[in-house]
Nucleic acid binder design. Structure first.
Lengths: 340, 340
DNA sequence: ATTTATTACGAAACCGTTGTAGTTTTGAAT
DNA sequence: ATTCAAAACTACAACGGTTTCGTAATAAAT
């Protein structure tokens, strides 16, 4: 800008104001400056601007892993609205580690972000790192994996209902001994999905037996934990006739495991799971799946966050948006030999 | 920092230097300052620092879509090294649109990035936007989809060889009329894979017939283009007995299409494709796939870029790293009724 | 006691913008 | 001709750090 001012025989202030279209500058001068700037294709330094007005126009996103069907779709949603509103997104993966999540947060705040989108790791039980941040005035929006201790906008799916519906489907389809493999009990999504599962069993007069409920503390990140959960289920005196898996990674790993073990789905054991893969239809067998509106979740989360970030007044009233899932019934849960 | 200086009765310079561990500051004063800073948990404003030394410690990534098995794995790789070296990644999706790619680039440079990682869109034929950027001194590294016109570090897989091996496998397996559905001919990956395909045919005395080669100008982003390519193939006087698909999206879409159409794989038609989905093994049927070292590609690209960014001297010598793929042979390409 | 190094610290410029508070110019009204 | 307001432009501080250069204090050497 200094150079422009010099070249045009004007002051730096004039150039700055012309570019910001200030009323103080005459049309002729503006045109002169704008034209010159075009020609030189100069772009103002956003860092200087950020420094000046204390906004970085970027938002942080903390989640377990980019490389995951569900979250990559969420990211796509976040990106779509962030992009349209001129925000960059800075992604940090916690890889389901609490320690890493702490580092991420520390890193992100030392990066000057205007707001933060968070889905906590499976290991996270202590939320002070987030609460502290919020106290310092950083707008935070939680998505997917919520935490009660933090009061802010939250975007979730109706986990209980989704899980309930899914389980009811299994029961209606004739399965009697249904196992549930879910993620870490630390997570809201796990407890809610488990609650929906239990509710369906109870309402249909089926026993709720803890032996048939398995937790994967790393959310299926470690294949072993899924494998051992299944193995334990299969070794029960009365093995389950259906498995309901509560997350993307667990679902796909279970499918792989059963396939490798030569266990026929649904003849030997039925399988239904949460997953957002577009391939559910063409899996072997086609998989009954509960899909989440991941893209929309990302969009809403970003929208709500940017709302907070750009709000003139401190926001005190927060809302929790609840999205609905879809149950896609396919061959993996069809009892008997009737195939499509 | 001003507050710290005031609180401790020191000058701002002293505080700054102490925090940067300058030799000019005595151990006692350093300790005093560091302790106080810890207690107040102050973090230096990175924007101010960026402004001072002209580095933003962030790198831009331009690719078609986050929400894609292959690219999300690449991103994971990029993130892993960027993170470890203290860089943020700023992702921009071009959604296979040239126009969008231009906007992305414009947006990114107005964002102050230290370097750029690019995999061009299917539509991109003109590379001046990138060349201009490079001329202005921005380090660029290309990955996956390369462009000859740009002289810089590049990371690719051995597309020709991968495709050649795959095709040879099909031929050895007994298929005679092999179709190839690939992405836009604008892309290096398309032409190279096509070349490998043709090479294998020629070497095995099979005719190369353009009727069996179909291009999807949007890389399979639009399901329709894949569907119509397949339909055209099936409507040929002599339909192919095998299809070789050259990208993730095309592969999965083809599988879906054939399944929906009730066409049996591999009995009616065999299918082999590039894809990085972990689900290939559990698809219906298990899919013969060519997988790419996506994570490694991301890592290398980020490494090479950061090397350029941090290089003291302008780099003139560039290299192209070529990675190898893996061919996983599965049921979808097994001739006859011999299943595993 | 004086000079000379050495160590520890501080003042101020700088990075590239923006906004406040002047200052000059213009032109109209008195 | 004088006054005054509005319009057009400029100087300068500020944003929050880093760094160069200068200076005071201390220690060592003469």
């Amino acid at each position: 800008m200094k150079d422009i001012a010099k070249a045009l025989g004007l002051s730096i202030s004039t150039v700055s104001k012309a570019l910001r279209d200030s009323y103080e500058i005459s049309q002729t001068t503006k045109k002169l400056i704008v034209d010159y700037v075009q020609e030189q294709n100069y772009v103002p330094n956003p860092i200087a601007r950020s420094l000046k007005d204390g906004k970085s126009k970027s938002i942080g996103v903390v989640l377990c892993s980019i490389d995951n069907t569900f979250y990559s779709q969420v990211l796509n949603g976040i990106d779509s609205v962030a992009y349209s509103k001129g925000y960059n997104i800075i992604i940090n993966q916690n890889h389901e580690s609490y320690e890493r999540e702490l580092l991420n947060i520390k890193h992100l705040i030392s990066t000057s972000i205007d707001g933060l989108l968070v889905s906590v790791s499976t290991e996270t039980k202590d939320y002070t790192h987030l609460i502290e941040l919020q106290k310092k005035g950083l707008p935070i929006v939680l998505f997917d994996r919520l935490v009660e201790e933090i009061n802010t906008h939250k975007i979730k799916i109706d986990n209980l209902q989704a899980s309930y519906e899914g389980t009811v489907h299994l029961i209606k389809a004739g399965f009697k001994t249904i196992a549930h493999i879910t993620s870490s009990p630390n997570l809201s999504i796990s407890t809610e999905r488990l609650a929906g599962f239990k509710k369906a069993l109870t309402e249909n007069n089926l026993p709720v037996n803890d032996e048939y409920i398995k937790f994967c503390d790393h959310g299926g990140m470690v294949a072993d934990e899924v494998d051992s959960a299944i193995t334990q289920l299969l070794n029960l005196a009365q093995p389950p006739d259906a498995i309901f898996t509560a997350s993307d990674r667990i679902t796909t790993r279970t499918l792989s495991f059963l396939n490798i073990a030569g266990i026929k789905i649904p003849e030997d054991i039925a399988l239904m799971g949460f997953t957002n893969t577009a391939l559910a239809e063409v899996l072997n067998p086609p998989l009954t799946s509960i899909t989440q509106p991941a893209f929309e979740m990302g969009q809403l989360a970003a929208q709500k966050l940017i709302e907070l970030v750009e709000s003139k007044y401190p926001v005190e009233e927060f809302e929790t948006l609840v999205l609905n899932t879809e149950l896609h019934i396919r061959k993996s849960t069809s009892k008997g030999k009737i195939f499509t």
